[in-house]
Design a protein around this nucleic acid. Structure first.
Lengths: 196, 196
DNA sequence: ATGTCCTTTCAGAATTTTCTGAAAGAACAA
DNA sequence: TTGTTCTTTCAGAAAATTCTGAAAGGACAT
């Protein structure tokens, strides 16, 4: 139940970071411990390792399960419930993105849309709506990108990330090779369509 | 000093969201108000509009300035200090990314690196280091991508985001046109270099 | 049924964070 | 200098969150 200094250092740092991202410290630590352990752990062991009460661990695990970041596992011949993180880091990133999207981004887009269709009651409101429109469009663009690249296989996604800004160069090339087709996601063509 | 219902709805939602991202609710509201107002506001007016104590506003603005999200402005012929957000939404995204990077991502990478060079004291530690390595490499890849695309002009960045996963198709094309050159960022070639 | 071993729930304690009012500081005018 | 108008700081009040122990719930064996 004693953590090695290595594990402890990681767990502590992760807890600290978690608390800066709206995740409570102990939940972050539980997650970090599960991640670094790389094997299913029973709640009791987590409680002992981290010096939390059993009930706190139970709450933390419930929270993590609701985020789909941890899943329950029954080991054969063992009555105790064990918990694990998916072992692929990329899966973790995907889940995190999905969940944040569903919990925070989508509701925000929804609020923004509601406010954008409301009748402005003053010149002030009209200007405010312009700002909201900008924010709405930006978020929608980011979300669209995320949606689109999340469909890629991890290997392709890695390639895309490694390519980085080089894409822009390729884009120019593309415009000279019409055979590739022009259509892109939804109604938004890739080619410039705004004044320069 | 009365907020229009439109502004109020936005400010309240933004405050709520802020608190889920590790930003305190009132700081989020102050920021939202400055953003949607689109003009420099004095601290007093913020305090009155949001019903916060003057000192709370002072603290909030200090925090926002430390994040570089808000700047102080002196209006000519007015002794009172006024505050504004940059008016370009993309600038906001860039600043947010930079700051999160400096405050959370870089320190995390540093911890991970320290733990990775430490001598493992057990088989358990060795396996833990493998997990840390995966996480380290993933973060470094994401950070590298962000670094790279942040150099783009906003217009180009928008193009790149609209393109989304289409990039992968272009990539294949690229591999058939060697004249474009092969080098990419740093020592990491884009082409596959792992077994399939 | 009862006992064992595990689980979650939840009221309230403990802790942390946030917010305020009072005081002090700064800049300027007269 | 003093007065005015603005500012920030900070100790402690207020509020929110987190954590715990006790109790209750559930699954299974005997």
């Amino acid at each position: 139940m004693e953590l090695s200094p290595l594990t402890e250092a990681f767990v502590m740092h992760f807890g600290e970071m978690g608390s800066r991202w709206g995740i409570n410290r102990t939940v972050g630590q539980i997650y970090a411990l599960l991640y670094i352990s790389g094997r299913p752990l029973p709640a009791d062991e987590i409680a002992q390792s981290l010096n939390f009460s059993r009930s706190n661990v139970s709450m933390g695990l419930k929270e993590l399960q609701s985020w789909q970041l941890v899943r329950l596992q029954h080991l054969p011949g063992n009555r105790r419930e064990h918990f694990t993180t998916p072992d692929d880091v990329w899966q973790i990133v995907r889940t995190l993105a999905e969940q944040r999207r569903a919990r925070e981004v989508d509701p925000t887009l929804s609020v923004l849309r509601d406010l954008l269709v409301a009748q402005p009651r003053s010149e002030e409101d009209r200007q405010a709506q312009e700002k909201l429109r900008e924010m709405h469009d930006l978020i929608e663009l980011l979300v669209g990108w995320a949606d689109d690249v999340s469909k890629l296989e991890t290997k392709e996604l890695v390639q895309l990330l490694k390519l980085g800004s080089k894409v822009v160069g390729l884009l120019e090339l593309k415009s000279r090779l019409p055979l590739l087709g022009r259509g892109t996601r939804g109604a938004a063509p890739v080619e410039d369509h705004e004044q320069d």
